[in-house]
C-alpha cells in the first residue's frame, strides 16, 4: 500500500495535480488565500478537465470549502489565479452552479419548489413561456415530480437537496460545484442521491467538483480524489479512480480496486492525523 501511495504522489505534498481527461475547464494556479489573517490555502495547483468528476477530501478545517468558493468565484485568491476556460474567474458565473450543504438556508422558504427553480430561470433570463415546462422537466429529473407546489418546509431534507440540485441545473451549468451536499442526510437517502448526481453528471456532461469528508463517497463518485492537509490547506495526495462506469452501490463498492483505493486513502488520512 505504501508503494502505491508513493507512486501516486511522486513530488511530495506540494506536487502539481494535472492528471485530467478532457481540455481544462477549471484551473487553480499557484493559489494562496489568507482570510482574516490566517493562511487557509497554500500553493494549490489543480486542473479539472472537461466532463471530469473530481472529489476533494480532508479533515474539517483543511480548506475544502474555501477551495470550492475560490473555484466558484465567491472568493478571490490572495496570490495566483483561478481560470475558467482560460478566462480569469473574477466573479461567479451563471454556468458554474453551486450546491450548498445547508439546503435549508440556500432555498427560499417563501417560494414553492416551482418558485425556487424559477429563481434560477429568472436569473438567466429564460423566456417566460418556456419556464413552466422546464421546471416540470427539472423537477422530474431530480425525482420530485408532482411536488412543484410544496414549500421547502413541507419537504424532507433529501427532497430539499434534490430541489437545490434542480435549481442549479436550471442554470444550464457546465460546471457543478458541490459542497458536502449530502453531509446532513441519512445513509439511504445519501446513496440514492449519489447515484442521482452521477447520472446527472453523465447525462449533462457537466464537469463536477465534489467536496466531502466521506472517503468512500469520494471514491464511489470520482474520476479523481484529491486529499487536502490542513494548516495551511494544501494538496497532499491525488488518486486516479479507474473504476468502471456506470457505478453501482453494491458491485462498485465490492470491487477489489475500490477496496484498494479505500485502504490507501484511509492510510493517508491516518498518517496525516498522526
Amino acid at each position: 500500500m505504501n508503494k502505491a501511495y508513493e507512486a501516486s504522489n511522486p513530488g511530495g505534498p506540494h506536487a502539481a495535480v494535472t492528471a485530467q481527461t478532457g481540455a481544462p475547464v477549471l484551473a487553480a494556479k499557484g493559489v494562496h488565500i489568507t482570510l482574516g489573517g490566517r493562511k487557509i490555502l497554500q500553493d494549490i495547483d489543480l486542473t479539472i478537465g472537461e466532463g471530469e468528476f473530481v472529489c476533494v477530501v480532508g479533515a474539517s478545517g483543511c480548506g475544502k470549502t474555501t477551495l470550492l468558493r475560490l473555484l466558484a468565484g465567491l472568493y478571490q485568491p490572495s496570490e495566483g489565479s483561478i481560470r475558467y476556460r482560460d478566462k480569469e474567474m473574477l466573479k461567479p458565473r451563471q454556468d458554474v452552479a453551486i450546491i450548498f450543504q445547508d439546503y435549508g438556508k440556500a432555498l427560499l422558504p417563501w417560494r414553492t419548489a416551482r418558485g425556487n427553480v424559477a429563481l434560477a430561470l429568472e436569473a438567466i433570463g429564460a423566456p417566460r413561456a418556456t419556464r413552466d415546462a422546464r421546471i416540470e422537466e427539472l423537477l422530474a429529473k431530480v425525482g420530485l415530480p408532482g411536488e412543484a407546489d410544496k414549500y421547502p418546509n413541507q419537504m424532507s431534507g433529501g427532497m430539499q437537496q434534490r430541489l437545490q440540485i434542480a435549481r442549479s441545473l436550471a442554470q444550464n451549468p457546465s460546471v457543478l460545484l458541490m459542497d458536502e451536499p449530502f453531509g446532513a442526510l441519512d445513509a439511504m437517502t445519501r446513496q440514492g442521491l449519489q447515484d442521482e448526481v452521477l447520472s446527472i453528471a453523465r447525462s449533462t456532461g457537466a464537469t463536477s467538483f465534489f467536496v466531502t469528508h466521506d472517503l468512500e463517497e469520494a471514491i464511489y463518485l470520482g474520476d479523481r480524489v484529491v486529499g487536502l492537509l490542513a494548516n495551511p490547506g494544501r494538496v497532499a495526495i491525488t488518486l486516479d479512480v479507474k473504476l468502471p462506469r456506470p457505478r453501482d452501490q453494491l458491485t462498485t463498492r465490492e470491487d477489489p480496486e475500490f477496496l484498494r483505493l479505500r485502504r490507501e486513502l484511509f492510510d493517508f488520512i491516518k498518517k496525516a492525523e498522526a
Binding site: L74, P92, I98, F100, K105, A106, I124, Q171
Partner: peptide, 12 residues
C-alpha cells in the same frame, strides 16, 4: 440569511 446573498451572487 447570508447564504441567500451567496446564492444570488452565484445566480448572477
Amino acid at each position: 440569511e447570508p447564504r441567500l446573498y451567496e446564492v444570488s451572487r452565484a445566480l448572477g
